[in-house]
Structure formats: C-alpha cells, structure tokens
Design a protein around this nucleic acid. Structure first.
Length: 559
RNA sequence: GCACCCGUAGUGAAAUGGAUAUCAUGCCGGUCUUCGGAACCGUUGUUGUAGGUUCGAAUCCUACCGGGUGCACCA
C-alpha cells in the first residue's frame, strides 16, 4: 500500500512541477489528519519559489485525478501537508485477508538470502554472569530475532573470555585460599579477592602475572586442573541461564582459540608499519587515525583483549565468509575501544571492517553507583531474575493453576517484565531500575502485553473456528489501522537496530485492543459483525504473539 | 586535562527536522465486573540555560551549566 501511494504521489508531484521528488510518507500523530501525510510541498516550495500551500494544492489536484484504489481522499492541511485518507473498506478487507495467513504476519523479506552474525552476552568463565550480561543478552537476542524476521539467516555467537588476567586473578586467590570448590559463587568471590590484591599488592601482582603466563602456556598441571574444572562449571552455569532466557547460540568463541590468530595478524601488520613497538609492547598508534593508542601485545609477549578481538573477527569471517554483517553487542564503556579496533581493522582488512557493526547499551542499575565485577558490588543475573520471580509468584499465588503450570507462568511473566524493562527504551542509555516500579504490572509492562494477548486467545478458543465474515463494518476502529502497520514497524526496527519501536507499537496496540474489547461485544451470535470482530481478534492475538516473540517474550496460554 | 554519550511533566520513558510534544506511573474523579477488572473512561502536569541555522527545532550548529563513560600493557 505504501509503495502504491508513494508512487502516485511522485507522479502527481512531478506533474505539479516538482521534478523527480523524494516522497516521505508518514503517519500523522493525530488520526483525524488522515492515515498518511507527506510534506513534499513544503520541502520543495522554496526551491521552486512557491507558497507551500499553493504547491500542495497543485499536487493534490493532480493526485485526485488518478487516485489509487484504496485512497478515499487527499487534502491540504496546516502549513502545506498533504493528508491522505484510506477507505475503511480497504482496512476491513486487509484484516480478513491477514487473518487467513496470520502465522507469518509481520515477516518481511528485506534481508532474504543474507547471512548475519550477532555476537552478544559474552560472559567470562570464572566471573559472575551479572545484569550487564543479562542486558546484552536481551538486546542481542531481540536484534537476532528482528533480523531473522526480516528474512536473514542469523548466526548467534557468544564470545567468552576463558583466558586472560581475570582468570589468573581467580586462580591466584584459589591457591591462597587453599581449597577449591567447583561452584560459581565461590569462583566469583575468589575473583574479587584476586582483583583487589592485584591492584594493591605488588607481590601478588607479580604472582598473578606469572600464573597468567602459565595459563597461556598450559605448562603447570596444578593450574590446568583448577582451570579446567572452573571453566566447566562456569559454562554449565551459563547454559542454564541461556535456557531460561530463551537463547540458543550457534557458535561459541573462546579467547583461548582466537589468541594465536590475533598475534599472527598483529605481527604481520607490524612489518607493514600498521603497528609499532613502544616500551616493549606492540601498539596501534590510533592518533594517526583520529583515535587513541592501544596495546595489542603486552611487553611479556601476551596478546591483550585487542589482539584477540582481531583474531576473533578474522575467525568469524573465515568460518562464515558470506556474512553481510558482523554485529557485536557490548556495554557502551567499550565504545572508544571499538572505535580503535575498527580503525585498526580498516587498515588490515577494509572489506571486513565495513561489515562490522558495534551496538552498545548502557547499564541497568538497581539504585546507584557503577556496577563492576572487579569491585564486587554486582547484582548477578540469577539474583535479579529470582527477585522478579518471587514478586510475580506473590501475585499469582491465589490463582487456580497446578504448581507446574504456575511455575511456568511465573517464569514467563517474570522474564517478560525484565525484558520489557530493558527493551522499552532506545538502546544506549542507562536504565534506572527501581525494583518496585520494574515489577509493577500496571500500564507499560511485559505482563500487560501478555495479559491482553491471553484475553484475546481466550475469546478465540471460545469462538471455535474462525470463519470468513460475510459482513464488514462501515467504519473501522483504530485497532485495524494499527494492526496493518506491523510489518512497517518491523522494518524500521530492523533498519535502525531498535527493538524499542516494537515495544512502543505493541504497547499502543494492546491498549487500543483493551479499549476495543471494553467497547465492543466480540462474541455475539445475533450480531452479523461478530465474525468480523473475531477475525480482528485473531489478527491481534497473532500480531502480539509474533511481536512478543521478536522481543524474546513468551505468551502463556493462561495467566 | 582531552574525547565521546546524555539532560523531555513529581517519577520512568517516546517522538522519521513537521501540525496542539505522546505514553505510562502518580494525584483526583468515574465505569451494566456477561467474551478473563492484571481492564476501561476522564482530570492534572514537561523539552537544562543562552544564542544560531530553517518556512518549521526536543531533534541540526556554537557556548555555558549539570550528569555518565573512556583515555598504554584489564576484559
């Protein structure tokens, strides 16, 4: 529909004296202004030395001469907008059409045939899986699903730091502690101790650096034993969290696997002058490219995170050479770091560099202060999910469900509340998480969306079979108009890597449906419009289900 | 010190350079509780400051004020 209208407007504008115009079609905020509007006349008025309103009138006259079928009327309004009204019949017919193939409603094909890798979450074995990882996972999973919904083949990747100083710090503390427990909480504690000593105690620092080297070399059997056991218990623990969150990774990358490749690249391009040796370390002199200098190989000859990143990227493209995009989701404290990496990549492999995309998120903070697993004042994902779950179970405790179903509902609702909190706002900013408000189920919330969907599902199961309606309404509601926009919303979310457009849309849609529900009797055997309303309800339920799926939120059968 | 990001009702957010800045929450007031009231309807209240660009600025530019993050061998 959008394309047809844009085309007609283009022709009309051309006839009205605007040669080859760019047409921007938008939905006016105020529905009384029509279903579409465009500002072509205002955009080109100045260049043509005309009054925008007069120009708009001319365009409308031309447009009216050959109206697309679904358009009812076009008129000039305000400072020179052209407002377009679509016939109610068109909307009603579209809804009926969609109701027959609702399962795929919203899927688009702009990425058909493309392969896209998205790397996200990236927790580190031996460290806590904290709420930052939870945030990255929620965002990365949603972007993955948006891209999938757009037709691409998505490869979900997770990159885990199984070597590096953080591991050495943990193992050092375990040696000092004298005992070893294969338990993530214990490992987390040891990491905090090792980290503190590294900063404050020169002797400890030297020992940790020594252990780090041995980890890389795998030269000490006692270290290897602790290392292997600790790595295993961490990874199993992460798997349990992914399951709960609904993520299935296609590929796990480990720092230990990409380190050598990274070192090789740095050494090769050191010869070509891209890297330099400075104070015993191999660095990338970022200042030459408007960035800052970073160390890629330290003075002990070990690769830093930077070199490993290069190795990782090279490995990704080696395994999947066709990748149209290699997206990486991280916290925004890594923004400057990634700029340097991409600047270096541009020198090493400009083609691959152009396919890299870094998306960063802010922090999810419980009350105040920066969260850091180094300082130990972290909220773990487990704690946060647990908190949500117990608040949800408080609300469902009087419901008449058996305990197994209730557990599932509590899980789905808690995760919905959490993911909604993260995805409702534009990616990048901090999310201030007030425990009380985040769990409140009133108004904007994941459970509100689930509830509206569940209500619609209940009606549908009572209605039985959805039949093709014989009667269509003369006037459609805002609900139908909104429903039809779903694929547009997906496309915009995909183009801007912005799940929050979908959240905003679904929240709007659920509110409009709840209002429709309150004002219309949907099931009524005597009402000839009832079959139509059932079709609308079906399209609504499926749009919500599909939209929530894209956000990584499940819809329970009952709640 | 330098660089980047962010300042929108009491609170949390939205807004593709467009029309009267939207939504939720909060406060106050209301709704045949037949299809699931975790709902619906109404009232109240907002673009950090000062300039500039533009027919039009929350959005772009400059300065200032306030907050966050990052800047050499951590990840």
């Amino acid at each position: 529909m959008n394309d047809i209208i844009t085309e007609s407007l283009k022709k009309a504008s051309d006839k009205a004296g605007i040669p080859n115009p760019t047409i921007k079609l938008e939905h006016p905020e105020d529905p009384s202004h029509g279903d579409f509007s465009t500002n072509v006349a205002m955009m080109y008025a100045k260049a043509l030395q005309m009054n925008p309103k007069t120009l708009a009138e001319k365009v409308v006259i031309e447009f009216n001469k050959d109206l697309p079928e679904m358009v009812l009327a076009a008129e000039v309004a305000g400072p020179g907008f052209i407002n377009i009204k679509i016939s109610d019949e068109y909307f009603a017919k579209e809804i009926v059409k969609i109701s027959k193939v609702a399962e795929n409603f919203g899927k688009i094909e702009i990425d058909k045939g493309k392969e896209v890798m998205i790397e996200y979450t990236d927790p580190n074995p031996f460290k806590v899986f904290h709420i930052g990882h939870l945030m990255a996972n929620t965002i990365g999973e949603s972007i993955s699903r948006i891209v999938e919904f757009s037709g691409a083949k998505v490869i979900r990747a997770c990159y885990q730091g199984d070597v590096g100083l953080h591991v050495a710090k943990t193992i050092w503390a375990i040696f000092k502690d004298g005992s070893f427990k294969a338990d993530v909480e214990y490992l987390g504690k040891m990491y905090v101790i090792g980290s503190e000593k590294y900063e404050t105690d020169e002797k400890a620092k030297a020992e940790i650096v020594g252990i780090n080297k041995k980890i890389f070399e795998r030269s000490d059997s006692e270290i290897n034993k602790i290392y292997d056991a600790g790595r295993k218990v961490s990874l199993e623990y992460f798997d349990a969290i992914y399951k709960k969150l609904g993520t299935k990774f296609d590929h796990f990358f480990f720092e230990s696997e990409v380190a050598d490749a990274g070192v090789k690249i740095v050494k090769e391009f050191l010869k070509q002058g891209i890297f330099e040796v400075s104070e015993g370390a191999t660095v990338f002199p970022g200042e030459k490219y408007g960035e800052h200098t970073r160390v890629f190989i330290n003075s002990q000859g070990l690769p830093t995170y930077e070199a490993k990143e290069l190795g990782l990227t090279a490995t990704k493209f080696k395994l999947y050479p066709k990748l149209a995009e290699a997206i990486v989701v991280t916290a925004n404290e890594q923004n400057a770091y990634f700029k340097v990496i991409i600047a270096a990549m541009k020198q090493i492999n400009p083609d691959q560099a152009s396919r890299m995309k870094h998306i960063s998120h802010g922090i999810l903070r419980p009350s105040s202060g920066k969260m850091s697993s180094r300082k130990g004042n972290v909220v773990s994902a487990e704690e946060l999910i647990g908190e949500f779950e117990s608040l949800v179970s408080e609300k469902t405790k009087d419901r008449d469900f058996d305990s197994k179903e209730k557990d599932e509902i509590n899980d789905d609702v808690a995760i919905a509340g959490l993911k909604y909190t993260i995805l409702r706002q534009a990616i990048g900013g901090d999310i201030i998480y007030d425990p009380q408000k985040a769990v409140s189920f009133e108004g904007d919330s994941g459970p509100y969306l689930q509830y509206a969907t569940v209500r619609a599902q209940a009606i549908l199961s009572k209605a039985g079979k959805v039949v093709t309606p014989k009667n269509l309404p003369e006037k459609v509601d805002l609900l139908e108009k909104l429903l039809i926009r779903f694929p547009e919303v997906i496309e915009r979310a995909r183009n801007e890597y912005a799940p929050h457009y979908i959240v905003t849309y679904l929240t709007d849609l659920a509110a409009v449906f709840n209002s429709y529900y309150a004002h219309n009797q949907i099931l009524d055997e005597r009402d000839p419009l009832s079959p139509y309303r059932i079709s609308v309800t079906k399209v609504f339920a499926q749009t919500m289900t599909n939209g929530l799926w894209v956000l990584g939120i499940k819809v329970p059968k009952r709640m």
